[in-house]
Amino acid sequence: MQLRLENFTKKFDNLTVIDQLNLTVESGEMMALLGPSGCGKSTTLFTICGIHRMNGGTLHFGDRDVSNLPSQQRNVGVVFQNYALYPHMNIRDNIAFPLRVQKLDNATIAKKVAEIAELVHIPELLDRKPAQLSGGQQQRVALARALVRKPDVLLLDEPLANLDAKLRLEMRSEIRRIQLETGITAILVTHDQVEAMSMCDRIALMKGGKIVQLSEPDQMYNDPVDTFVAGFLGNPPISFLDAQVNADVFQVGPSQITIADSLRAKVNGAVKLGIRPEYFGPQFGTGITGKISFVETQGREDLYNVTLPDGSVLRSIQAAGPRLKLGDSVNWGISHDHALAFTPDGARI
């Protein structure tokens, strides 16, 4: 079912947190609301499920206007960050609760609970209490409870934040699998770009109550609209250099970087260059000289910070190889086709 949020405005007391936001999630799509804390992504999620009320705008599920409906009538499934399982009920009762309040008969409830437990792989846990479950299992129960009454939309609020690194990896693919199997329209709220990129069809990157960019993950990574988006995605993060356009090259201190053909006509004067770590290194030739100011070994890969003569820093990630030491001088090159150019105030050129 398509979800359509139009001109959505939210105020807390007199403080406008979100102003005139528009967002459409297509049927069966999984959309990430990504952004730093305080960007309004959780507020948006809480408004979609009806816990917060809108101060302006409309919300449609398909053709149904739910803007003024209470949570109970919206038919939205929510998975909360801490799962919010009811501690005094066993797992079966937890999952059955949404059906119980609809006053369905016991046989139907039992059947639906069994089905959903099968889907999320927890049929053997039904008689336990939430406290007896691991984090990952609780997560599955929360999913089951959110999905059991076949909601129009599934909302996930930082669902992986409370899991350890290994489980997080497992649940990432599990949630995606379940979403795809049920074909439900889903919104994932997260501050973790990796989750957003790996799980979702599209990402809405938010900042200060606005959507800065809405696109597919790889496009957002490769084609960011501004320095904020470029900086938010990617780990280790992108580095920025101040440069001057000088005929066919970007002049960065004493070094020069060729301007890609696609950019040549659009740039002049002062620009900001964004260089991702994977596009800076010896494999791209030479031309940029500097000193190694930081080394981190991540096993398969090595991460270097190179401080240029003017003090700016470039990051580089390379397959593990001959170890360079702190203070070594290097002369590496940049894949100039992949250099991203921004205006001095951050907009993409």
Partner: peptide
């Protein structure tokens, strides 16, 4: 009592009274 418990109850379609009676009181 965690707010999320109540939010979850409301999301699951229960009225505020039911949420209080069935979910919050036991806590």
């Amino acid at each position: 009592v965690p707010w999320e418990i109540e939010m979850a109850g409301v999301q699951d379609g229960a009225s505020r009274f039911t949420v209080w009676w069935k979910l919050v009181l036991p806590q």
